[in-house]
Amino acid sequence: MAKADGHILRVQGLKTYFPIRRGVFSRIRGWVRAVDGVDLDIPRGQTVGLVGESGCGKTTLGRTLLRLIPATAGTAWFEDELIFSANRRRMRQLRRQMQIIFQDPVGSLNPRMTVQTIVGEPLKVHGLAHGRALRQRVVNLLEQVGLSPGYLNRYPHEFSGGQRQRIGIARALALEPKFIICDEPVSALDVSIQSQILNLLADLQDALGLSYLFIAHNLAVVEHFCGEVAVMYLGQIVERAGSEDLYRNPVHPYTKTLLSAVPIPDPRTKTACQAPVGDVSDTSGPFTGCPFHPRCSLAQDQCRQECPQLREIGPGHFVACWRTE
């Protein structure tokens, strides 16, 4: 299939493996399959949610797309450009259009830099502005994310978590990107601040026509924020559908489990969680079949031997599960 086909991003068969090195000569003894064959399309101007438990590979997927981590196999188109085969110069151009907002607003801002330096740095690195123009641009960016321009010369520790996240967003916006990966942007924030940041992201999307890949583990946040949601388990996408469809009518046993585990904010309705047995298993060992089969109550012989592929079971609703045949 050629190019991104009108999508801002098209990912096909993406794999990211990490070597496990052991012994005196650090020989490679195995691979951790963090991302194991992912297909994903992100429509222009829309938000696709990516949910899964810790260790499922959702962050690795995001970072691989930005080439912060090398991909092992697969292709990814950003508009008409192949991300993984772009040379240094092209990649620099691409990075202007693809940005990331990190989970931890403390760890992702340099404590020795002022807000002006942090937000202005991408502009300087790409030689887009300097001197007075740079300063003016930073002021505009701060206003865009709801921060007072009076903060220009302050350091990150002088801000609260929500304000730091706003600084991170301003930095991501500096290069006027088309696509932003939001890696758990609100999970480290207080409840009353979370909604402020989500509203800000929604407003920016409307104003600037941004496309988001929204990585999160909070299913309630993803539902209200994303048009389409992909559920990831052990490096694979097991279900993908329009957000309303996925939440009303989950098909994959893992999606069902995940949804049933969300605590209900009503003291009279106790969560009836069909919690899966055990924890997320290890991906380093050789395993066959469906990645969820050791924890799945519906698993059969076929599930243990063959890995199911994503199949369309309704308009725009894809599931990888043998038991939905």
């Binding site: 009353s192 979370q194 929604a202």
Partner: peptide, 24 residues
């Protein structure tokens, strides 16, 4: 009341949440 309003809930289809303004 503000905490309750800003709570994202499953099954609630609303793009903007009611936020409590200001900071802690």
């Amino acid at each position: 009341q503000g905490l309750f309003r800003s709570l994202p809930r499953l099954g609630q289809k609303k793009r903007r949440l009611d936020a409590i303004g200001g900071t802690v």
